[in-house]
Design a protein around this nucleic acid. Structure first.
Length: 711
DNA sequence: GAGCACTGC
């Protein structure tokens, strides 16, 4: 057995003395029903007052008054997300009906925080306090504190480029540096400039950087300067401060219990094995408390799960009280909920998680964290346009985030399965997503906002020139950009309006012309969500035979159409029998289970479908169907995805016509055995080999319009 | 004949 021995050492920057215990009003004892809500209010007030941020309320409000931009560095548990908007509201920042907007990278955070703040303010959600996320708008004209996802605010900016409704925008979790956050930061900087100039001139502001919509032009509105607050949990505020021209940074203390950090003496050659050893070491040597182990993916989690149970058999009966709970994003939600179930007494829960447990999900009861120091991360090659997932070392910030998960409820321990010297070699923070992904969407969105010079755009971290050029090229080939790199009218402008990958937006526009919009809309919705197929390893054969009835000889795209239509048809049948939404949901999820379809993905696809349908109607695009005319659909698919056409080679592999890349058909495709001469694919992924997934037969006469017949 | 971290509009 290798390693697993940990050197005990305290890592100073995270160990912090616990706050004094809070005296809380007991909700259960002695309170009559009529007093309960009063008690609850009292309890909430106490909670609010006890937050670390409460002691600096006045100072924070002063700083916001004095500065147009400030950076707030607040650690976990400081209360910045829930309290600051309330402080600003009370200080009069919503006068004249203006709104305080708070952005979050994740939907679930926007919703839960809004609910909490509405309760604290003792108002109904959707009134003074509300939230807006894709598919869900819980706001009204009286909403003054609005939580939303950062991507949604970007969409809003397309309609109102100077964000005229907002007096304050708070960008929360900015340290995560998602693509949306980064684009938003650049945009907000410009909006701030524009509003400031207009304010000083005291007349409507017009320039060529920020476009105004007609309403703004005609109403001759006057705009107050935009207050901007960047909130980050990372200790390094310098980057943000420099980007915002030396903006002041304010530190707010967090509330976190001390976490002992332990390193190994030597590097571990096999982190899976080291994880196992550490799980058992904690279980046998340490006091009660649940263990959270970070692994890289589903397969690894399943492996460790199995190995834990295997080794458990070797332990004496009394020590076999371990309960393993896996959690990763593609796990059905009922199974995800298992991590929140209380651990049976005398049992130790071992949570085997991907990075979903780093930020998205907070699991109570965790006292021990095992951090092997690796993560599966997306890697994008701008030259080939290829994405792949690779296992790589985490950053220092990520390591801190992980160890912090052990100190939420009491003092904890974190076992880093690497030597301390390795920790110091890790990069400080994860490379911002904008440097690791395709920029086609970002470029299109910026063009839509009126920024023509993308290479010169003031990004906090500039993506590589080649990455931008690749995206410009792609958008040009899709017809979204003109020869002089301006947004084309109407195609480019229409494309900015769809919340989809640009290539899918173009497919919808073309499908209107080809009279198969109904089918393409389904395809685009199904391709926009996570995999629709649920394939548990132990029931793979059963799953395959369940999918067989949907399969189309023309390819995966029409197979997806068949599945979607079968699901809708089933739902309507149930709806005819009952009008209870819950019963319909339940039946549909049973249908999904019987057919090995991922319920969550299907629901998501239904949502996307209905959302896009509304946009299509607004744009006067009629939902035409090609009926049984499969050729018509293939023509349209070929015209839409001509960039993704590939030809069969003598050895059975394929060659992408646009760039010569050699690829294989993924075995999950319905065309895997058929191997048609020429295919259209909508996904390219590198694993052990370079695979294309979601494939249909190309329609050659259409394809020859885009490529020389010879080549 | 293979295997998909996590988000988001």
């Amino acid at each position: 057995m290798s390693g697993g021995a940990c050197e005990r050492r305290c890592f100073p920057s995270i160990s912090r003395s616990p706050l004094k215990e809070q005296k809380l009003v007991n909700l259960n004892e002695g309170s009559k029903a009529s007093n309960k809500s009063l008690d609850r209010k009292h309890w909430i007030l106490q909670q609010r007052r006890s937050l670390p941020i409460a002691s600096v309320e006045r100072r924070l409000v002063d700083e916001v008054r004095k500065n147009d931009t400030i950076i707030i560095v607040g650690e976990t548990g400081s209360g910045k997300t829930t309290q600051l908007p309330q402080y600003l509201f009370n200080a009069g920042f919503c006068r004249d009906g203006k709104v305080i907007g708070i952005t979050q990278p994740r939907r679930v955070a926007a919703v839960t925080v809004a609910k909490r703040v509405a309760e604290e303010c003792d108002v109904q959600l959707g009134q003074k306090v509300g939230y807006a996320i894709r598919f869900e708008d819980a706001t009204s004209t009286s909403t003054r504190i609005k939580y939303m996802t950062d991507g949604l605010l970007l969409r809003e900016a397309l309609l109102d480029p100077i964000l005229s409704r907002y007096s304050v925008i708070i960008v929360d979790e900015a340290h995560e540096r998602t693509v949306h956050t980064d684009v938003l930061l650049g945009l907000l900087k410009k909006v701030q400039d524009a509003r400031l100039k207009q304010h000083k001139l005291d007349k409507p502001y017009i320039n060529n950087v920020v476009k105004f919509d007609n309403e703004c032009h005609s109403s001759n509105m006057k705009f107050s300067p935009l207050k901007l607050i960047i909130m980050s949990a990372s200790l390094d505020a310098k980057g943000f401060s420099e980007y915002f021209c030396g903006a002041k940074a304010v530190y707010v203390q967090g509330r976190q219990y001390p976490v002992d950090i332990l390193y190994t003496y030597h590097p571990e050659p096999d982190y899976v094995d080291a994880t196992l050893i550490t799980i058992f070491k904690i279980h046998l040597d340490d006091s009660p408390g649940d263990i959270l182990a970070f692994l890289t993916g589903q397969e690894e989690i399943e492996l460790v799960d199995m190995l834990v149970h295997e080794r458990l058999k070797q332990l004496p009966e009394l020590s076999r009280n371990i309960l393993t709970v896996p959690i990763y994003s593609s796990l059905p939600s009922e199974q995800q909920m298992n991590v929140f179930r209380p651990t049976p007494s005398n049992f130790r829960k071992v949570i085997l998680a991907t990075n979903i447990a780093e930020t998205s999900v907070t699991i109570p009861g965790v006292k021990y964290v095992i951090d092997p120091g690796v993560v599966k991360s997306r890697y994008y090659n701008p030259v080939t346009g290829m994405e792949s997932l690779i296992i790589m070392p985490i950053s220092k910030a990520q390591a801190l985030q992980r160890s912090g998960r052990a100190g939420r409820e009491g003092p904890g321990k974190c076992f880093r399965l690497y030597p301390e010297s390795e920790f110091w070699k890790l990069i400080d923070s994860t490379v911002p997503e904008i440097k690791r992904c395709s920029l086609s969407n970002v470029v299109l969105q910026l063009k839509g906002l009126g920024f023509d010079d993308i290479i010169g755009f003031d990004f906090m971290d500039k993506p590589s020139r080649s990455s931008i050029k690749q995206s410009l090229q792609e958008l040009y080939l899709l017809g979204a950009l003109t020869d002089d790199c301006k947004l084309s009218d109407p195609v480019g402008i229409q494309m900015t309006r769809f919340p989809l990958d640009p290539i899918y937006s173009k497919a919808l526009i073309l499908a209107g012309e080809f009279k198969c919009l109904e089918e393409m809309l389904i395809v685009v919705a199904m391709l926009s969500v996570e995999s629709i197929f649920y394939s548990p390893r132990e029931k793979l054969e059963e799953a395959r035979s369940a999918w067989k009835k949907f399969s189309s000889p023309d390819g995966d795209h029409l197979t997806l159409v068949t599945i979607f239509r079968a699901a809708v048809e089933y739902r309507e049948k149930i709806r005819a029998a009952t009008n209870k939404e819950k019963a319909i949901d339940k039946s549909l999820s049973r249908w999904c289970r019987d057919n090995f379809i991922n319920n969550r993905s299907l629901k998501h696809a239904l949502d996307v479908h209905s959302q896009i349908k509304v946009y299509l109607k607004q744009m006067d695009m009629a939902l035409s169907s090609c009926g049984d005319d499969v050729l018509q659909f293939r023509r349209c698919l070929t015209a839409s995805f001509f960039l993704n056409a590939a030809e069969k080679q003598p050895d059975g592999s394929y060659r992408v016509k646009a760039n010569g890349q050699k690829v294989q058909i993924h075995p999950s495709s319905v065309l895997f055995r058929t191997k048609p001469e020429c295919i259209i694919f909508t996904e390219l992924i590198q694993t052990n080999q370079i695979y294309v997934r979601n494939i249909s037969r190309a329609w050659m006469p259409e394809l020859s319009k885009y490529y020389d017949v010879e080549s």
